[in-house]
């Protein structure tokens, strides 16, 4: 147990992924769902870095993680913009209420 290896990180990432999934499925607040998505993305990025560190891929994993971080930031910006719009139209942030397909 004292030697930290790839498996440790992967298990950790799996736990993060499940937490993220749980958050995404149970939260009704749209921002909460976004937070869940961030958790899932972090789990994926953690996997990538772990493979880069302990696998044979070199730095590719780290580069991929950089892209994940950039995309996550972009996603958050757009998501918040959408939520603000959503809130403006529906006067709520409850994601379950956005089922009208109409502005």
């Amino acid at each position: 147990m004292l030697t930290i290896g790839l498996t440790h990180y992967l298990v950790l990432a799996a736990a993060l992924l499940c937490c993220g999934l749980y958050v995404m499925t149970t939260k009704r607040n749209a921002v909460g769902i976004l937070i869940g998505a961030e958790l899932v993305l972090n789990a994926a990025a953690l996997n990538l870095v772990a493979f880069a560190r302990y696998g044979a891929g070199g730095l590719d994993g780290q580069v991929a993680t950089l892209f994940v971080i950039v995309l996550a930031a972009a996603e958050a910006a757009i998501a918040i913009a959408i939520f603000v719009n959503y809130y403006r139209v529906l006067a709520t942030i409850d994601a379950d209420r956005g089922d009208t397909l109409k502005g």
Partner: peptide, 21 residues
């Protein structure tokens, strides 16, 4: 980079979003 972009940027945007809505 994780700290700068996520903690310093994304998270603040999220908190902003929370406060706006």
């Amino acid at each position: 980079i994780q700290l700068i972009v996520y903690a310093g940027g994304t998270l603040i945007v999220i908190v902003f979003g929370v406060m706006l809505t």
